[in-house]
Design a protein around this nucleic acid. Structure first.
Lengths: 131, 131
DNA sequence: TCACTTGTATATTGTACATGTACAATAGGC
DNA sequence: GCCTATTGTACATGTACAATATACAAGTGA
């Protein structure tokens, strides 16, 4: 088991590493994998685990702190906050539907069966309705 | 109605324009908005419509051609192909589930209600099951 | 106090996006 | 058949950003 709670990045991906870290950690935070008040790995420790520079991790932490997920302090590290929900935003304005369709289109293009995609989406939808 | 079948890009987005074009057109292609044999706008025409350079559109067309969606020929333009499905790929190997979770996590962080996300996913899942 | 840990700031380097420009191949009128 | 316009392509350039190396500032803890 890795020290970070199952976080994987792909150095070969064209997607920026710092963005992969942000996206991956945010998913874990939303899933409730980290309790408020809990310590996250230091920027240097996580950097070693992932094989990147600590400034790259620091940039990711700054983004998450900006979103209200973390509190950063020198000498202390990164602490998970009890995040307050922001003002409700409509799906339409966020563009979630469009992004979802594009994600599905990519999967279909790559050969993933539509039935499998439908199952995954239905499962996650159910999980969201009853948390 | 615009000549491209409802394709919008955001020049201010950090996401590369050529990638937005690829993703948007691919979604339209998967949705069956373009019939096989049909002509797509020329790289120069679409470039004018979107307000970008024609080489940017050309790069997008090349990606879609690589995926088997289009056939490109000088002097003729871009023609939609009757695309053969590639070898089936498992969802797990594709990483669709992880990307989906990250997309949802971003929406939740931005304040979109979980119920709204669940509805959109359930609706699209249903549409995929009965095409 | 003082050594150590942690996040931060700045400069540098490589890479990728978008463009400007010129070229090659095809279509269509004559 | 030839000629011109049209279409996609190739290549070089400007610019912005990602990732790093290095040095620094602020807090911790004995």
């Amino acid at each position: 088991m890795g020290s970070p709670r199952t976080l994987r990045i792909d150095l070969a991906s064209p997607r920026p590493v710092y963005e992969q870290i942000v996206s991956g950690l945010r998913a874990l935070l939303v899933a409730g994998e980290f309790a408020p008040g809990e310590q996250l790995p230091t920027v240097r420790q996580l950097a070693i685990d992932l094989g990147v520079h600590h400034n790259t991790v620091a940039e990711s932490y700054r983004v998450l702190a900006e979103e209200g997920w973390l509190e950063l302090r020198r000498g202390r590290g990164a602490v998970v906050l009890d995040r307050r929900e922001p003002k409700p935003l409509t799906v339409a304005k966020h563009g979630f539907g469009r992004h979802l369709e594009e994600l599905v289109a990519k999967a279909i293009t790559d050969g993933v069966p539509r039935s499998a995609l439908a199952e995954q989406m239905a499962a996650l939808a159910e999980k969201l309705r009853k948390p």
